[in-house]
Nucleic acid binder design. Structure first.
Lengths: 339, 339
DNA sequence: CTGTTAGCGCCTTCAC
DNA sequence: GTGAAGGCGCTAACAG
């Protein structure tokens, strides 16, 4: 194949230039709305662009401008509603600014998850937003250090060099939950957590334990950890309730897990909230139609997604804060009937 | 800035070549596991790659190979669980094969949605999988025609030149629903549909109407259309039930809408399924915990996502079927308590 | 206002 | 087995 032009390939800037009778540069200028182009020339070029159905190749452009107008988004499980909503939210914000999102899940067994992130970088993304999950702060830190692109971490409030962290105020949320339980006269709180990955201590767990200890005096509240899905939440809650019959309140790592707790209570003949009060996290819409409707800590996932996008943009513009930065978002307690 | 190498930039193949004391070509050969490289050389290059933390730039590679190992995925609403699951499923399949997914939502008012798809192409994706939603067959057809990349349409069974269609057998699903209602002695079926975009007739709606007409003799079953969320489903169902008190069965465009119907029935003091039976589509996990649990048509979204990815791959390998191709997937009726 | 030159980082082809 | 050109599609820097 001496030349391309197989007839199927998309037209290039050269084709446009040829048809318009100008140089590639002029076409490039028209594309970027450069002011110093004669109106007549501009019109001819635009004409040629239209007749050819030409669209610039963003990879070729990115190669020289060092910017692909693309961000990476990573989380362990896109089917999790909180991650999914955040992803969707970022995508909307991104596209409003001409950006696209490369989305990927993170695997626990993939060079410790950073392999996927590194590959994201080779794709030419201008920055990465991620939910850290099983990655600990030092892994995020070293990723951010080797990455020449801004990194935003969502959902964990840690100050890490060169990364912007956007997270809900977990301490406040935990207090709201424990206080709410207290209002209902509950002191024996069981905690349903997300899997505890090796090395990682969850902010949420720490906050919850601290709030329970300081407000109820109970030293180490019973915990059960599992993958945060309904079925696992049900199992975990069953285990906890059988082992600790004194439990009169259950808090789930997220709403899905709390829904499992609702089922476990039903299985065991316990009334919610009379025998056991249940509260979840996230504020997913389905929480409104459980039986009874789920009380929950609402996270503004769209707002945070938006902030994540903006943070990425501003890092690109003004550089990443070398000492890191933490954006804390207020939680909101949505009281329905379960707790 | 005369040269790059700002110290922050990622190393290139040249840096590796310099350190290993070979030419760029040799590095390239090592990267692509080309056989004819001396073991010693290969070792030196690999060493250099490791010490530099070098990763090849996939955009630069794509520019010459004409393949970015990237696919586009598009749907109107990523927060819809069916779309979200399919997206997640494709992403997993993709990454197993070294592919990444560029994810985007489609806007109704964006050159009719094709604008976003065109941009996806300029990003250099090797193919596009999409849920057509408000795009009609002719729009998909012309997009596939101008695209030099394979196109897979998920969720609509239309035979369109150069596109592979992957969809559940809507006729069969509709029959299963109507038959199930018949078993329960229900003949007055109300339909809760997704918004009816101009020009578009939903396969699902057509299938449902056909099944109702042929199996119950009812000429044109009452329909109400809205955005498929719980609240809208509730409104639509309320409208329908008030206007047609004879209705004893309701089918929702998806589970979310059917959940709204459940709420509408409760609002109106109707028992489910005794007064009104309710069936949805999709088989989302939350359907298991509604009151009563939701009977539903389960779609194998992961299986279809996988098939979509494989179809894209095979089109790349063997070319797209010029006369189009339709892959039909069997529905499954999951009987719980609502219908 | 417009064209020329020189790459962005990589792979393909052809030499050696 | 390895290296030297050349080019993928585009823009930046300089001419003029």
């Amino acid at each position: 194949m001496p030349r391309r032009r197989t007839g199927i390939d998309r037209p290039t800037i050269i084709d446009v230039a040829d048809i318009a009778g100008v140089s590639r540069q002029t076409v490039s200028r028209v594309l970027s709305d450069h002011p110093r182009v004669a109106d007549a020339t501009r019109a001819r070029v635009k004409e040629a662009i239209k007749t050819l159905g030409y669209r610039p190749n963003r990879m070729a452009r990115a190669l020289v401008t060092q910017s692909s107008l693309t961000f990476g988004f990573a989380a362990v499980d896109m089917r999790d509603l909180h991650f999914g909503d955040t992803c969707a939210g970022m995508q909307v914000a991104a596209r409003e600014h001409g950006y696209y999102l490369v989305v990927t899940e993170l695997d626990f067994d993939d060079e410790g998850g950073v392999g996927t992130l590194e590959t994201l970088l080779t794709l030419g993304v201008d920055g990465v937003a991620l939910f850290p999950s099983f990655l600990d702060d030092s892994e995020i830190e070293s990723f951010a250090a080797t990455s020449d692109r801004p990194v935003v971490m969502i959902g964990r409030q840690s100050r890490i060099p060169n990364v912007v962290s956007i997270a809900m105020d977990e301490d406040r949320a935990a207090e709201m939950i424990v206080d709410r339980f207290a209002e209902m006269g509950r002191r024996n709180i069981g905690i349903l957590m997300n899997e505890m990955y090796p090395r990682i201590v969850h902010n949420r767990f720490v906050a919850l334990r601290k709030a329970v200890e300081s407000r109820t005096g109970v030293a180490s509240p019973p915990v059960e950890a599992d993958y945060p899905k309904i079925a696992n939440g049900r199992d975990a809650a069953t285990t906890l309730l059988k082992r600790h019959p004194e439990i009169d309140a259950l808090v789930g790592f997220n709403d899905t897990m709390a829904m499992g707790a609702l089922l476990a209570c039903r299985d065991l003949g316990l009334r919610v909230p009379d025998d056991v009060a249940v509260i979840g996290y996230d504020g997913i819409p389905f929480g409104a139609i459980t039986d009874p409707p789920l009380t929950t800590i609402v996270q503004d996932s769209i707002g945070m997604a938006d902030a994540a996008f903006k943070a990425l943009l501003s890092c690109l513009k003004d550089g990443t804060p070398e000492d890191g930065r933490v954006q804390v978002w207020p939680p909101e307690l949505l009281i329905r009937e379960s707790g």
